[in-house]
Design a binder for these strands. Structure first.
Lengths: 363, 363
DNA sequence: TTTAGCACTCTCTTTCCCCGAGTGCTAAAG
DNA sequence: CTTTAGCACTCGGGGAAAGAGAGTGCTAAA
C-alpha cells in the first residue's frame, strides 16, 4: 500500500531530524519545522498511522518516534535528496588519491583511511581479482652465492617477486632453460589448474633443476591465492565511539572486535549486478553483529581485472545521502585514476541497490 | 632511601593484588593473603609510610591503596617475578610465526595480530632499516608493447619491483645497456646520496634512453625511503574496551584515535642501548595521551640489517611480568627465524630497560 | 478533516540516605 | 620500641523517592 504524499513528507522530516539529532522526534517539532502548515495534533495522527504501518517506532509510550529499518529503507529509496559532495571534499579526495596511486601496495589502506576521515565512520577497503588470475610470465635472475630472484608477472599486470635461497649459485644457462620451461608450461594456469601433477610433469621435463621448479610453483600458487582475495583493511574503528548509539560499552566492544576480524569483513554486502553502490540497513544485514547498524559499500574498478570495495559501517541513523555521495565519488575517482583518466566530475548520481529497491527520486 | 624488606613485600602484595583485581587494596586483604604474619594495623602503618613516600596512592580517604607510577617502577625493576611463558603459549607463537615468515610483506601485521591476541591488549608492530639502505642491483625486463619491469635488489636483500609503462617496447639491447649503466653508477647509494645531479649524470652517459633512468631512479629513491621507516601497524585496538580503566568513553575514544595515528606510533618508546625490551610506565611516557597508560616494547632482529619493534599499550595496571615475557619470546622467535635458526628455548630472561633502572631480581 | 484541550504515561535527573569498607589515631600489650 | 586491638570518622556507591518534562492518545468541538 502506497503512502500518501503527506505521510511521506512527515516520514522524511522524522528521518532527517533523527539523523541530525539522534533524539526521538515529537509531533510538535515536526509541526514547527517541517513547514507543512499542520498542527501537532494532525501530525500526531499521521505519526500513529506510520507507526502502525511499521515505518516508525516508539522507544516507549511517551517518547517521540524514531525511524524503523523499513522507514529508513523507504527514505533511502524514495525520499532522500541526493547529495553531491562539496568542492572542498572533492578537492581533498583528489589530492589524497592522486599522489598515492603510483604505488599500488599501500593504496588499499590509504583509501580506507581517507574514507574514514571523510565520513567520520569506520571504513573498510579491499580489492580482489574480478576473474581468476594466472601467471603471465616467469623470470629467474641469478644472485651471487645465494640463489635466485623469481619475478612473476600476473595476468592483471601485477609483478611479484621472491628471493629464493638455494645455498648455491645456479648456472645462468640453467636458469634460462628453466624459465623457458616455466613460461611454456605454467603460464596461463589458474589457481585450480595448478595441480601437483602439472608441477611434477614440468619438473620432470627439465634435468638438474634441484627442486627449483617446485619452489617456484609453490610461490606462484601462493601469490595467485593471495591476489584473489586481498587482505581487508579497516580504518578509523575508533570513530564508532563518537556515535551516541555506541555509548554502550559492550556494544562498542563487540562491534570493534567484529570489525577487526578480516574473515567477517569479507562477508560484508557487495553491490549487486551493475550498480556501483549498495546500502544495507540494520536487519537487512546478514551478520548478527550488524543487525542494528548500516553498511554502505561502493565498488570501484581498480584496473587490470581488479575490483575494489570501499565501505563504511555506522549506526542505522547515518547520513545515507552524504556518505553515499562521498563513497561513490571516491570510487569513481579511483576507477578513473586507475585507468589513467582524469578526475571525475562530481556526478553523475549513481544508482543505489538494496532490498525492496525503489525508484530513486532524483532531485 | 632504600625501603625495608618488609615494605617491599607489602608493596609487591599491593601491586599484584591490584593488577589482578583492579580494585584498591586494603590493609586487611594484605594481612590475610600475603602471609606476612602481621596484623592489619601494622600493615596500615606501613601502607601509610609507602603512601607518604610516593609509592602508593589513595583514590580517596576511605579507600584502599593503589600503586603509583613510582610504585610500579620499583615493582618492575626489583620486585616482580620474571614469568616464563607457558608451553602452550610458546607453541601458539611458534605455530603462528613459522608458517608466515616465508613472506615478509604480511609479516608485520601478522605479528601485531598475534601479539594482541596473546596479550589481550592493543599491539603495534613496525620494522625499519637499522642502517641506511642502498640498491644492490638493478634489472630491467622488457614487457611487450607496454614498457618494462624494473626489479631492484636492496642491500637488505629485499626485492622490489615496478611495472613501468612507456607506451612502447624498448629494445632488449637498450635495456641491457641501461641496466649495466644503472648497476655501475646508482648501486650502493644511500637515500641522501641519490642527488638529482647524480641521476642527471647517469642519464647523460647513455643515449636514447627516453627518460627511463629518471623513472628508475625515482622509484629507487622512493623505495629506499619507504623501506627506511616502514608503516606501523596496530592490531586489536578494541581490546582496550575490555579493560576497566577504559570504561570511560571519552578516554577510550581518545586512546583509540591516538593509536590510529601512525605518526604518533613512530614516537613511541624504544629499547635503549643493547637491551631488548623496554617498559614505560604512565607519566614516564612522553606523549600526553599515554600519561596514564603503560607501554611495553621489544626489539627484534629481522635479519638483513632490518630491525623490528613489537609493542603493547595498556593501562598502568597491566601484568608487566607476563606481557614482557610474551613480547620477548615473540621477539626472540622472530629474530631466530629470520636468521634461519630454530625456535628459541623459553629463555634466557631478558634485561629490562626503563627509567630509574634497577637491578632485576632474578628468581 | 482538522484542531484544541487534557489526562496519562514513562523516562531521566536530582536528591537524599544508608551501608560498608577502610582509614588514622590512641592506648594497651609484647 | 614495635605490634596490636579498638573505635570514631570519612567517603564513595547504590537504591529509593520525588519531581520535571516531553510526548502521547483520546475526546469533543470547529
Amino acid at each position: 500500500m502506497e503512502l500518501t504524499d503527506r505521510k511521506k513528507k512527515i516520514l522524511r522530516a522524522v528521518v532527517e531530524s533523527y539523523i541530525e539529532t539522534a533524539e526521538p522526534v515529537g509531533s510538535k517539532a515536526i509541526a514547527s519545522t517541517a513547514g507543512l502548515g499542520l498542527s501537532s495534533a494532525t501530525i500526531r495522527n499521521e505519526l500513529a498511522d506510520l507507526t502502525e504501518e511499521g515505518y516508525l517506532e516508539q522507544p516507549h509510550t511517551s517518547a517521540g518516534r524514531i525511524p524503523s529499518a523499513k522507514g529508513y529503507r523507504l527514505y533511502v529509496n524514495e525520499l532522500m535528496e541526493r547529495h553531491r559532495i562539496s568542492a572542498e571534499e572533492a578537492e581533498e579526495i583528489n589530492a589524497s588519491l592522486k599522489q598515492r596511486l603510483q604505488r599500488l601496495d599501500g593504496l588499499i589502506s590509504d583509501v580506507g583511511k581517507l574514507t574514514s576521515r571523510l565520513t567520520n565512520f569506520p571504513a573498510y577497503a579491499m580489492a580482489s581479482a574480478a576473474s581468476p588470475l594466472t601467471v603471465k610470465r616467469f623470470e629467474l635472475l641469478p644472485v651471487e652465492d645465494s640463489g635466485l630472484i623469481l619475478v612473476m608477472m600476473l595476468s592483471n599486470n601485477a609483478v611479484k617477486n621472491k628471493l629464493v635461497k638455494l645455498g648455491f649459485s645456479p648456472a645462468p644457462d640453467l636458469l634460462a632453460k628453466l624459465s623457458t620451461v616455466l613460461n611454456a608450461s605454467l603460464t596461463g594456469l589458474t589457481e585450480t589448474e595448478f595441480t601437483p601433477e602439472k608441477i611434477e610433469a614440468t619438473e620432470r621435463s627439465v634435468a638438474g633443476e634441484n627442486g627449483i621448479v617446485s619452489v617456484v610453483a609453490g610461490f606462484a600458487l601462493e601469490e595467485l591465492i593471495k591476489a584473489r582475495d586481498s587482505e581487508a583493511y579497516v580504518a578509523g574503528a575508533g570513530k564508532l565511539l563518537g556515535q551516541p548509539e555506541y555509548q554502550d560499552l559492550g556494544k562498542a566492544h563487540r562491534m570493534l572486535e567484529y570489525l577487526s576480524d578480516s574473515r567477517e569483513l569479507k562477508q560484508l554486502p557487495q553491490p549487486e549486478g551493475d550498480s556501483k553502490i549498495k546500502i544495507t540497513i540494520g536487519p537487512e544485514n546478514l551478520a548478527e553483529e550488524l543487525k542494528d547498524s548500516s553498511v554502505i559499500v561502493a565498488r570501484y574498478d581498480a584496473g587490470d581485472n581488479m575490483q575494489g570495495l570501499i565501505g563504511v559501517v555506522g549506526p542505522t541513523r547515518m547520513d545515507y545521502s552524504s556518505v553515499a555521495a562521498q563513497l561513490s565519488y571516491i570510487a569513481d575517482t579511483l576507477s578513473n585514476l586507475s585507468r589513467g583518466g582524469a578526475m571525475p566530475l562530481p556526478g553523475p548520481l549513481p544508482r543505489l541497490t538494496g532490498e525492496n529497491e525503489g525508484d530513486p527520486t532524483e532531485k
